[in-house]
Structures are given as C-alpha cells and as structure tokens.
Design a protein around this nucleic acid. Structure first.
Lengths: 220, 220, 220, 220
DNA sequence: AATGAATGAGCGTTCATTCAT
DNA sequence: AATGAATGAACGCTCATTCAT
C-alpha cells in the first residue's frame, strides 16, 4: 500500500516544494525591488512569507543565487509577452516600435529589476556565459534581429552596427525612464515608444534617402 | 565612562593637507571603481596610501562624502576638457560629434564613475539641488543646448524632446562601452562617435525632409 | 556589492529564547553596574555568557534597549517586594519607614541601577511617557501617596510639597548609600531607615505642635 | 640688556600661560556642561577657543585632568561665595538655610557640574584622597559642622548622624533640582531653601519638644 | 520540511593621544 | 608656544550563513 501511494506522495511533495520556491522568489523580488540587493536581507525575504531565514537556504544556496533566479524568472515572463506581442506584426517599423514599447513597459513595471541586472549582475565575474546572460542576450536579440533584417533587405543603412542601436535603445530607455520616474512628468509609454522609434528608424534610413536633405548648420 | 585610549606610536609620512586630500581622492576613486560603493571599504582606501582609516575621516566626514567629492572632481576635469574641445567648432553636427566623442572617452577611462553616478547618487535623497547635481546638469546640458539650438533654427525636427536625445546618447554610450569593454571588440571611439552622431542627427532631420522617404518595410 | 560572508563553525550551547534573554539581561545588568552605560560594551556583555556579540542583537535591538529592559526588570522586582511589604501595615509612620527601608535595600543591592536611571535615562528624550517612566512614577508614588494621605488627614503639615519629601528620601538615600558603601562604615539598613523616617516624619509635624517649641539657636 | 628684560619676559610668559589655562578651562567647562564628559571631545574644547587639539595637551595631560581641574575651580569659586554668605549670620537655622540656598543656586547655575561630579568623578578609582575629594569634603563639611555644633549645644537631637543630614540635603537637592529643571515649574530657590530647612530643622528638634505631639496615624 | 539559535567577519565612525614641524 | 597630521583601538551594529533540534 505504501508503495502504491508513493508516486502520489512524491508528486505532492514536489508540488509543495515548487510552491515554496515560488513564494520565496516572489518575496525576494519584492524585497530586492524595494531595497536593492545589498540592503535587502534574507531575513526580511523570509519574514514576509512567514518563514524563517534558514528555510530559504534549504531552497537557495546563497542570497546571490536568489537574485539570479528572480531575474531569470523575469526574463522568462518577458519572453512570452514579447513573442505574443510581435506575432502578427510584419511591418518592420511597427515591430521595432513594439519592442521598444514592451521594454518601456517592463522597465516601468519593474524598474528595479532592470537596475539589479545592470548594477549587480552584469559584469560580475561568473555572469558571462551564465544562463542569465543567455536570457539577456536572447531578450535583446529580438531588436538586433530586426535591425539586421532591415539592413539585409536594404530598408536600413548598413553602416551602423545593429548592436549599437540595441545599446542606444536599452541604455536610452534606462536613462529616460529613470528621469521620468524620478522627475515630474509621468511616463507616456506610447508616445515615448513612437519618438524613439521614429528618431532611430529615420536615422537608419539608407543614405540615398538621407542625402537628399543634408544637415545644414546655421552659423552660430 | 569610556576607557582611556592608548597612544599612537609610528607615523606615516606627513603630507600637507591638500596633498593628502588628493591622495585619498585618487585612492577612493580607484577602490570605488574596482568594487563599487558598497563593497569598497574606507579601510582599503586608507590602506592603499599607507594610512590609517581614521585619517580619512579627518578630511572627509563620511564615506558618502568621499564618493561625492570623487565624482565632483571628475566632473570638474570633464568640464575643462569639454570646453576646450568645443572651442572653435561651429558646425552643429561637428559639435554634437565632439560631445559624444568626449563622453565616450570619459566612460572608457572611468566606466565605473558613470555607473556610480547613476547607481549610487542620482535619485538618492539629498542629491537634488546638490553641487554634484548642478555639475551633472551642466555636463549633460551641453548636448541638450545643441539640440535645442538646432530645433530653434529649424535644422532639427522639433517633435523630439531634447532630453530624450540626451538620454539615448548617455544611456546608449553607457551600454555600448560596457558591452565593448566586456566583449570581444575594442572600443574605436572616433568611429563610434561618428556612428552615434550620424544615426541621431539624421534621425533628427526635419519631418519635411524625412517625409519624402518613408520607411518601407519589406515583408519578412 | 558586499563581499560574501564566511560561515560559522562552532556554536555555544543552545538555549531557549526566554532563557537567553534572561541570561543576557543578567549579564547586562552586571556589566552596566560595574562600568556604567558608556563604558559597558555589548561585546563584554556577550562574552560573559560565552556568546557572540551579534546574538545579543537578535534579542535586543540596541544597547540602549538593553539598558531599558534591565531597568524595567528591576522595577518589576521592586514592585512585588514593596507591595508584599506594605500589606498589613496601616500605621502611617511604619509604612513610610517600610518604603524607606525597601529602597535602601534596593540601592544597597544594586546601587548602580539607581545611578543609571538617574544619569542615563531620566531626562533623555523619549523617556517621558515610556514604560520605564511609568514604572518609575509608580515606584516613587508609593511614598508621595503616603505623604499626601497624611496631609489630608492632618497628621502631616501641608506646607511641604510631598514631592520634595520624595526627592529628599530618594536623593538622600542615593548619597547616603554611596558614601557608606565607599566609606568606612557598613550600611545598617534598619537603623538608617529609622533615622530617615524619624527625621522626616517629625519634621512633618503639624505647625501647631512644632510652633510650641521653636528652634532656639544658641549663639556661636 | 637682554638679561635685564628677562624677568619681565618671564612674567609675561607666565601670564600668557595662565590666560591660556583659563581659556581652556572655561571652554572645557562649557563643553562638559553641554554634552557631558564622554560626549565632549577635546577637539571641540580646543576649537571653541580657536586653537588646536594638541595645544590642550601642552597644558593638561589628559582629558580627565581637564575635567578634574574644571571641577576644582568650581569648588574654589563656591568656597568664596559660601564664606562671604555665612559671614555675619549667627542664627543656626539661618546659617543652615543659607547653606541650602547657596547649594541650590550652585546647582541651578551649573547643574551639569554637579552631575559631572556625581557621575564621572566620585567613586572612580583615584578620587579618594584627591584634591578634588578634599574640596568636596570641605564644601559639604560646612553643613556637617553646623549640625554638629547644634548637636553639641543641644539645639539639635543627637541621634541623627550629621552626615545623614548632609546626604539628605545634597542628594535631595540634586533630585529636586533635576525634577524642577526638567519639569514644568520654575525653581523658586528661596522657597525651596526654606522648605528644606524647615523640614529638617524641625525634624531635628530635641526629643523633648517633639515628644509632646507624637504622630498619630489615622487608621487607613 | 521547518525552526531559530548561533556564528563571525566586517564596516563606518569616533576620539584621546602623540609628535614632527 | 603652537600647529595639525597621524595613530590605533574601540565600539555599535548588521547579516549571510550554518546547524542542532
């Protein structure tokens, strides 16, 4: 009888375990977002879900591991969103705008997670080649792919490295969001997405088109 | 009552106040850059110049004050460079390129100082209105001024907020530098400056000109 | 980012929370009494019970909190003693003598706790209205009540503020104990209690009685 | 010529030295009073008179020495005041009242100096037998002498140790002043002096007089 | 699976004191 | 006589991590 029940029990345990992991990750995300990595304490992460510090270490070997998994989960959510959003859009510029818009939304919703990525994880030893790194590359690759495709079919000029465009977009959004969030204005995502897309896409027009109206500087 | 403190015995080489302050600031800049603010310890900053922790506090009231002054010095150096570089250039696009180029150089030399500004200082209470804030505004204002002047004389389209351009430039450079420094390629500052300038300036062309050649997306 | 902390290896004997709290409070009381508040170090309080500094902070948020709780416990012990001692005594003078006697004993046993109250706690911001303040009021009120009752029923003169009597008793005992403890004589509590009581109660005779035999000073 | 000037110069130097000592002691008294001993820093004491920490150590070997000398000076001032005040008063009770009144004034004017004596100095090793101890004994002896004289000539009962009276007075005043200073009421020195004197002196009536009207306690 | 007592290393900061100049 | 640079030993407090129960 005991043998017969085993699979069910194992399954239940596995489910319980998964739930705990979820709980902890949600709590960790909240605390990391509110306080940043250093100021967040494992004690608080545990306390918020009514458990004890030690238990967290049953599921995650270190505080850092916890941070990494929080961020991995976040990327995994973003992937789904992004792919659903791109589906059915074929116009290049519209696709770019959609990617920009999605990232803006992501940053608005969890600005701190972005910060954590950039502040605490990237560039630390061990990041390069990690599964988080892979997710980050995959995430930003959507935009790079779009630019490259445009360059291949001639709708974008080819003398700008696609990765530079990616950096301007993600770096720019980081700064822009920061300023808006801390500043007086609210963040108008659609407007901002259009402005960024417009600015970059028109800058990316092939020279032939751009050459027709060179920048003429007035004397100062 | 506090226990009586015991006397000092051996002394490091005496230095004039200003020299020590300089030494400490240089050491602090190095350590902050290598480890970030939190992980940097005042003890290490002191040890690197063969001095005892307490002495640092004779010249700087807190660790944070030390960070702030490191950053202020950095800005002060940048101002001189920037103004010398702009002098004598009147062509708008050349001025923009120069600003981009200078910032690229600054970030390449001390990529972490940017990060410190962005991560540790901006948005913390007390930053707004501080002399560091003033320096930061002044520094980033160079570019904003250039864009606004272009918008006023009609050489730049007016439907893009100048501050967005600034954010794309500074945020983008931060990401680009970061990627290049950590990645495989070396950083070709002149080339990168030209690419960024070209991309943005052409994206900033007045609509009338741009409207003549709308982006036509090829089907994927 | 903070450097990773290294693990613990050897552990002191585990104790139930309440027991540890007790142990710590006893140790704290001893060290505070021996050295005073400032010179007492949390490290020593911990070391005396074979425990590490940090553990103290698991149970008490600050050193000051520790002091406060030591004093609260002391008052709580005193209340029990005092009330048991007063029960069944109805003679006013006997009640006063009992209160004096009890305080003398308290001060003899822990002369420094009085001092700590008076020096470190009273008059500090946050004391007024605290639970320690409440205990202090309750404790000294016993005597004030007795004096007031005597004034109401005419057995004590009414032109002396009861609080002055209280101050003379508690302040006087503090000094007297101090001198005796540090001086040559031992502290004969019963005798001293009788002397103080006699001195004050007879000084509290209604004017009518005292007026009959005014103090006649001999010329010097 | 140089030889001839020597005495004058020596004298000038001695004067200058004495002035410095005075300056430092005044500054030290102020800072000790404002902050207490531990919280006072030698740096601040020096800064207030526009000199440098090191100079203080030219004149006083330690911070503690500074405290001791501040207190000695204070006692020396009090002696003069007290003796001038007592001169010409022969009535015993009036003399007691005057002593009480003078101490009340001293405590009102420099309550912190009293505190320092009691908190930081008395009972510390080295106090016993020190010149400060001598001054303290001399100061409180005035009152003890008065009581003893009264006991000798029969105007005070002899079964109360004069030192107990002294402790009640000085301890009581400490508490009373503390309460009044921190409390709502202002300190009416003359009234308080009269109340204390009256309470104690009438309590000190020879048994014969007091025995005529024993305290009759009403049943509670 | 969960608890929670315990560790230990570290950090920012203060300050009495010394001594070269 | 005066300066002020430098020391060094604490101290209060925090927290990731371990492990007995």
């Amino acid at each position: 009888m005991a043998a017969a029940r085993k699979p069910a029990r194992t399954h239940a345990i596995r489910r319980a375990r998964a739930q705990r992991v979820d709980e902890i990750l949600v709590s960790a995300r909240d605390v990391f977002c509110e306080k940043g990595y250093d100021a967040a304490s494992v004690a608080e992460i545990a306390a918020r879900i009514g458990v004890v510090e030690g238990l967290v270490y049953k599921y995650f070997s270190t505080k850092r591991e916890l941070l990494l998994q929080v961020l991995e989960r976040w990327y995994d959510e973003l992937f789904g969103d992004t792919e659903r959003a791109l589906a059915g859009i074929s116009d290049r510029r519209a696709r770019v705008r959609m990617l920009v818009r999605h990232h803006l939304r992501a940053v608005r919703d969890y600005p701190q997670l972005c910060k954590l990525m950039f502040r605490e994880v990237q560039g630390e030893s061990g990041y390069h080649g990690s599964s988080l790194h892979a997710r980050n590359r995959r995430y930003t690759q959507y935009l790079v792919d779009e630019i490259e495709a445009g360059q291949r079919d001639g709708s974008f000029r080819a003398d700008i490295p696609p990765r530079l465009v990616r950096d301007l977009v993600y770096g720019g959004i980081e700064h822009a969001t920061w300023h808006y969030l801390r500043g007086r204005g609210s963040l108008d995502i659609d407007r901002l997405a259009e402005q960024i897309t417009s600015l970059l896409c028109e800058g990316l027009l092939p020279r032939a088109a751009a050459a027709m109206s060179p920048v003429r500087n007035k004397p100062r």
